[in-house]
Every structure is written in C-alpha cells, then in structure tokens.
Design a protein around this nucleic acid. Structure first.
Length: 587
DNA sequence: GTAGGGTTAG
C-alpha cells in the first residue's frame, strides 16, 4: 500500500524508524510511525515500517498497540502474504506471552506458504513457555514435512528448548545441513551438552572449532560449562589459556564464570586478583551480574564485610544481589542480620522469589530461629505468592529437625502435597543424627535410599548414627549393604590455604607433620563446644587410634594453630581432591 | 527489512 501526499523524502522515515527501534528507543519509534502515517509521506510503503513498529509495541509490552497494528496490516492487505509483517507479528505476540494469538495468526497462513522466519518466530515463542518441548519439536517436524528450509536461527531457537535425548539427533540434523559449523550453532550445541552434563562432548566441540570460528562466546560457553559442572581446575586452566591466546579478550561474562569457580573453591586470593583487575576496567564498574558474582565470592570465602560494601555501593541491585547477601549472612550464622536485610528488600519493593525464600528459611534454620522460619514458611504463599517447593520443605524439615522437633518434621513430610525428594528425607536423617534418634533415622534412611540409592553420604550418616548409639550391629549392616551395592565411601577432604601453601586433610588423617598438635586442638575445641572437660579426658584415653575426626575439624585446628588471632581461615571441604593440582592453587 | 547463541543466587 502506498500512502503519499507530503513532500519530504519518504524512505528516510523507513530508515530512521528502523534505527530508532534498533537503538531501543521504542516510544520514539512508535511516535515516528504515527507521524509518518498521518502525514502520508510519498513513496512510503506501510509494509516497510510496520514490522519495526510492531516490535517496538511488543518491546513496550503494549498489547493493544500490537493488536491495532495487526488490524492495520489486515486492512492494508499485508496479511498473510507479507513475510516481514507476518513474522514481526508472530514475534510480537510471542514476546507479549500471547502465544494463542500467534498460533491463530499462523494457522491463517496457507499450508506450506509460511516462510522460515515465521516458523522461527513461533518456535522462539514456544521456547518462552514453561513446558514447550513437544510443541516445538512438532513445529520443527512440520517444517521439515512441508519442506520449509530451516536455518541457523531455527536451530538456535529449537536446541535450548529440546529435551536432552533430542540433542544428539538434532546435532546430526545440523551437521547434515552444514549448519553445525556456524559459530552461533556450535556455541549453542556446546551449551546444550553442558546443560545435560556431557562435558566431554562439549569440550570435543570446542576443540573441533577452528580458531577463526572460536569467538569470545565459545570461550565463555566452555568456561561456564566447566564452572556449572563443578570442574574448577579446568575453569582456571582454560581461563589461563584464554588469557595467553591473543585473539580474544575476556569480558564480564568470562569473569563471572571464573569468579563463581573461585567462590566454589574458596580461592579467595585468585578471586581478589580478578576483583582488582575488574576495578581497573571502568566498563565493568556498572555490571550488576559481575557485582553479584563478587558478592557471592566474598560471601563464600567468609568476607561478609567486603561483600556488604560491594552490595551497599552498587548503583542497581537485583533480587540476586539481595539473595546472595541474605544467604551469606545465613550461612555464617548471622540469622538476625539476614532477616533485617530481607525486611529491607521488601521495603524497597522487591518481591521475593522462591530462591530468596530458600535463603531466608535456611538463615532461620542455621540461626536457630525455628519459630521465625515457620512463620515465613506458612505466610510466604499469601504474602509473596511463592508456592512452597521441595527445596522449601527441605529447609523447614531441617529447621524443625535442628530444633529437636523430629515428630513435627516427620508430620510435615507426610502432609506434603507433592512427593518428597532425597534432600527432604536427608534433612530428617541429618536431624536424627543431631538428636540421636535411631528409630526415626531408620525410617528416613529407607525412604532416602529409595530415591538416591547411590548417594554414599546417607549411608555414612546412618552408620554414624548407629555408631553414636553404640549399635555396632547397625554399623556392620550398613557397611554390608554398601559393599553389596558396590558403593565406596568418598574420602572427604578439606584444605586450608596458608601462606600460599595448600594443606590437605582427610578424615582421621595423621600424615600432617603437625598431626599431634592438631588432634590435641580438635579435642580441646570439642570439649569447649560441649562445655565438658570430662569428655576431653575420656576420649583421649580410650581411643587409640583416634577416630571420628572429620577432615574439616582437622583443617580448622591446623588453621588455629598457625595463624594470629583474628586472622582469616578459609576451609574448603568435600571437593574432588584433583583441584589441588590446579596451577593457580600452587604458591 | 523478519527470527537470535554465552552470564549470577538455592
């Protein structure tokens, strides 16, 4: 359709509108569109400016405007034939979460006349919906049946939403269409493999990429892959390689991956180096994601004051910033401060999500505030619209359990609207250990082992409960089941970074040069905690050799023996011992 | 001109 009266150069509006919309100035874009229509510029086709206007309306969440533009398109005779208008509308309805409208529009397109871009828009729209993979795969199959060519964009929309089993066949499809070597597609495949834990496949893809196709995103995806799969040593190794390979410069996303690994390892010194590097780059200064990663680093390494300073100085805080800080106070036993911060978050108008509530409940649990925790748990649905998930139940079972209310914890599990999972029964089992309840422990163990038959931790826990109760028959039985199922006790290890040297401790480990002093220290500490000097003497005499010494206790004792009062001791436990050979952890 | 890959908290 041509609308033309005015004298100004028509196509200028088209170009300006696109640029303005692309720059994110959507209000201006819509104003310009209205202006162009009203003044009917010559040689200006509505079809050339309508797609940008439609997408601007969607970007501003203006459903009525999108619907108006839709009817304008109909009146102008642009639907369903104009592929650009059609695709923009499909994309707009998808982004406005009006998927039914998108589907209805798509159905009006004559079969096999729909362009690739229309399918792509609809697939992306379905990918935004919570349970979408069947619908998406159906769309893709229909595309192939109707011989509509697919492209890289199709795969980028399809792959992240596809179920794990569909990834390898889709990889094959991409390969045969000569799309698997397109950087964006191979990066996407890499993250898909990462997400399902297929780290080796991801690495293989990474290694197979020729250097000129390996871009910053490829490096970031591989680093995040290692980080998310807990392979800390590999993260630091790859980051090191990246820094020495001149072609790409790390960006904020790279550093977030590395920082999360430092947080996981408690590698405070490396993390601080990265923080220092960041502080010299003004462009990183306003990156909220990066600040959140730094908060998490300091929180996990025990430097709450530094974490809080970063938090306080942030120009913008997201719910992630608040949650990281609340969780930090919670995990270090500052329950009151955690709740104060939570109240403040509510005050500034941030509505907590499920994860924020997990951090609140666990702060209550670790801070011994059972009543407060129960209050938050029972009110969170009405107050904040957070429906309790299994993670919340696990927190509350832990909370009741620690407080000695084992029966109530059991009743809560029984009353759950969904089936309890391993961590929930595990929390009850842990509470049984604290309160020495063998009967309930046996019941909880039976359930937890049905759900997680190979989780060695639960066997060890029950064995220790029997051992505490002097029930050696039980200990033997648990050991027999473990043997029968081919399960081996994971050697728990803890380490301390002291003066640039890493000191590793295993449970009941006597190999350290200071072993004698360390064991003395543990016994003293235990006696202090129990406020029972009798125990110190008795355990010392009767236990030869000494057993039941957690690796973590040994590491803490070592730290206390070798540092000044008030010095920071960071103990990291239960990591795969392989991380200790990492290059960055050496002095 | 349309569709779009990598990022933090539990």
């Amino acid at each position: 359709m041509r609308v033309g009266v005015s004298s100004s150069g028509g196509h200028l509006s088209t170009i300006r509108l696109r640029d303005i919309a692309a720059a994110g100035r959507h209000h201006e874009a819509l104003d310009l569109f209205r202006h162009a229509l009203r003044h009917s510029e010559p040689f200006l086709s509505v079809s050339s400016i309508l797609p940008s206007a439609i997408l601007s309306a969607a970007a501003l969440s203006l459903s009525p405007a999108a619907a108006q533009l839709h009817s304008l398109a109909l009146k102008s005779g642009l639907l369903p034939a104009d592929p650009f208008v059609l695709t923009a509308l499909l994309s707009a309805y998808s982004r406005l979460r009006l998927l039914p409208l998108a589907c209805r529009l798509f159905d009006e397109v004559p079969s096999s006349a729909a362009p690739t871009s229309a399918f792509n828009a609809l697939i992306s729209g379905h990918a935004l919906a919570p349970v979408s993979s069947p619908a998406i795969l159906a769309l893709f199959l229909r595309m192939r049946r109707e011989a509509v060519p697919f492209d890289d964009v199709t795969l980028l929309a399809l792959l992240p939403a596809a179920p794990p089993v569909a990834i390898p066949p889709l990889h094959g499809v991409a390969f045969r269409a000569a799309l698997a070597s397109v950087s964006s597609v191979s990066n996407c495949l890499l993250s898909c493999y990462s997400r399902v834990g297929a780290v080796d496949f991801a690495r293989q893809l990474f290694d197979e990429m020729p250097d000129h196709r390996k871009d910053l995103i490829s490096w970031n995806a591989m680093i995040s892959c290692y980080a998310q799969n807990g392979l800390a040593h590999q993260v630091l190794d790859l980051f090191d390689t990246m820094e020495h390979s001149a072609s790409v410069e790390p960006n904020a996303v790279t550093l977030i991956g590395v920082l999360s690994t430092c947080a996981y390892l408690g590698a405070h010194s490396i993390g601080r180096k990265i923080e220092n590097y960041i502080s010299q780059k003004p462009s990183f200064d306003s990156n909220t994601y990066l600040k959140n990663a730094l908060i998490n680093l300091h929180v996990r390494c025990g430097d709450l004051a530094r974490a809080r300073t970063i938090f306080d100085e942030m120009p913008q805080r997201t719910i992630v910033s608040w949650t990281a800080m609340i969780a930090g106070y919670g995990m270090h036993g500052h329950g009151e401060e955690a709740l104060r911060l939570f109240d403040k978050m509510i005050e500034v108008g941030i509505r907590p999500d499920g994860i924020a509530m997990v951090s609140v409940l666990s702060a209550c649990s670790h801070g011994g505030m059972a009543d407060k925790g129960m209050w938050y748990f029972s009110s969170m649905k009405t107050a904040y619209g957070v429906v309790p998930s299994r993670a919340h139940y696990a927190c509350v079972v832990d909370l009741l359990g620690r407080a000695g209310q084992l029966k109530e914890a059991w009743k809560l599990i029984e009353s759950m609207p969904v089936e309890p999972d391993g961590p929930i029964w595990g929390a009850l089992l842990g509470a049984c250990k604290i309160h020495k309840n063998v009967e309930l422990a046996e019941l909880a163990f039976e359930r937890v082992i049905e759900l997680e038959p190979t989780n060695v931790g639960y066997y060890v826990l029950l064995s220790n409960i029997y051992s505490d109760a002097g029930r050696l028959d039980g200990v033997a039985r648990v050991r027999a089941i473990m043997r029968q199922r081919g399960l081996k006790k994971d050697p728990g290890c803890s380490y301390v970074d002291h003066k640039g040297k890493v000191h590793l401790f295993m449970a009941d480990d006597h190999s350290h040069p200071q072993a004698k002093n360390i064991y003395e220290m543990v016994l003293r500490l235990e006696a202090m905690v129990k406020n029972d000097s009798e125990m110190y003497g008795s355990k010392r005499k009767e236990n030869l050799p000494l057993t039941g010494f957690h690796s973590e206790k040994l590491a803490i004792a070592f730290g206390l023996l070798n540092t000044e009062a008030g010095a920071e001791i960071v103990v990291i436990k239960n990591l795969r011992c392989s991380v200790l050979s990492g290059p960055l952890l050496k002095p």
